[in-house]
């Protein structure tokens, strides 16, 4: 991947929203078994903040999860600073403010079905984290 091309052609998406894979940060920015925060590009003045977590699965492999950084219950941009873990088989992050759990896979809040985070697909290519984000 070169310096200027931060976008990759969208994959086939059946309905409504259009997505693009967008380069967000370097793989080396990720912190294993913890979270970091990054900005996604937007057209609007309001920031779109991403919480990015990396869970080690084995000695060699880890899995990266991307959700929105806004805590809908605590009402602050803090999700990336939560502790990750599991409830039953589900991988979750616990809000650092009031400790509700959100699924890292689909963003749903375990304790309160009225609230959820946005969850985004991601992958690592050539040392760069790509996130599949909706376009305007």
């Amino acid at each position: 991947m070169t310096n200027n091309s931060t976008e990759i052609e969208p994959q086939e998406e059946p309905i409504i929203r259009h997505f693009k894979w967008i380069a967000i940060c370097k793989e080396s920015d990720l912190v294993v078994n913890s979270g970091i925060c990054a900005l996604a590009p937007t057209q609007t003045p309001k920031q779109q903040q991403l919480a990015i977590f990396t869970q080690q699965i084995s000695r060699q492999n880890s899995q990266t999860y991307v959700v929105s950084n806004w805590d809908p219950i605590g009402k602050a941009n803090v999700i990336s600073r939560g502790i990750i873990g599991s409830i039953d088989e589900q991988i979750v992050v616990s809000s650092p403010l009031y400790k509700q759990h959100f699924s890292l896979v689909n963003g749903h809040c375990i304790e309160d079905s009225l609230h959820r985070l946005e969850a985004y697909e991601s992958r690592i290519e050539n040392g760069v984290l790509l996130v599949k984000l909706p376009t305007e």
Partner: peptide
């Protein structure tokens, strides 16, 4: 330390007390 950082509460991770606005 890298092996302990993911275990800490946010207050310990950032060596400060998180307030309601982050």
């Amino acid at each position: 330390n890298s092996e302990h950082v993911g275990l800490q509460d946010t207050n310990d991770t950032y060596l400060g007390n998180m307030q309601k606005d982050g």
